[in-house]
Design a protein around this nucleic acid. Structure first.
Lengths: 118, 118
DNA sequence: GCCATATTCAACCAAACGGTTGACGAAACC
DNA sequence: GGTTTCGTCAACCGTTTGGTTGAATATGGC
């Protein structure tokens, strides 16, 4: 499925930049306005705005305009496909899903949603 | 930790290209010589060789020269850091296994270890 | 209405990307 | 030892990237 491949292109590309990953980390803590996102970076607001556009097009964040402020929110679901893709490699030797479940169990001890519907 | 950040740059960048991901998928099945890796792609050997260099520098594969043949081997451990990084955003309620199965079916159509009920 | 604030747009730039080609070096074959 | 095979190197090319700047487009406050 080429569409999927293209989405992985975009996702991984979006993640392949330290500024963008830092932005995602910041948004992990709270939603933020564009200028607040930009504040800690030593680059222009326009540059950060571009980064946000890339993250947004990758689906990694969503942006909602309220008044003249545009709020940015993390959309971690977009990481799912990429994460699954990666895990398919790490766990492939034991590709059976049992192993994958065990992996999830050790990696997210508190999480028992494996096997449920999304 | 800037070194880690730089490694993530390199890893994600390496993954952000469909040719390189396809190469990784191929190496999932078996170690391969450079020319065999290149064979299915409609691009020059030199181009594939460059891709392999990028994957190698990212630690995603290793290359061992035996005679005049250079063998390429998947190194899935290198995905671990990137995978863990992504999971730090893992609000997503665990990768659900249905999605994982479907994903494997579309991404590795020839591989019948995915989708088994066992 | 006017000014300040928040954000994007447009044009530009240097550097990196993904590809090509042709030359090259090293190993293998006969 | 000449030739073929395997793979990389070097130079080049067009495109994309990540950044800049300055102008433009809202929106909100007075």
């Amino acid at each position: 499925m080429p569409a999927m491949s293209h989405r992985l292109d975009i996702t991984f590309h979006a993640l392949a930049d330290p500024t963008r990953r830092a932005i995602l980390s910041m948004l992990l803590e709270d939603d933020m306005a564009v200028s607040d996102v930009a504040e800690p970076f030593e680059m222009s607001l326009a540059a950060v705005s571009k980064h946000l556009g890339i993250l947004s097009r990758a689906g990694l964040i969503s942006q909602e305009r309220r008044g003249r402020v545009k709020w940015c929110q993390l959309e971690p679901d977009a990481l799912r496909d990429a994460s699954i893709w990666m895990q398919s490699f790490g766990q492939f030797e034991a590709v059976n899903l049992d192993a994958f479940e065990k992996f999830l169990a050790t990696e997210f001890p508190g999480n028992d949603t494996a096997g449920q519907d999304g």
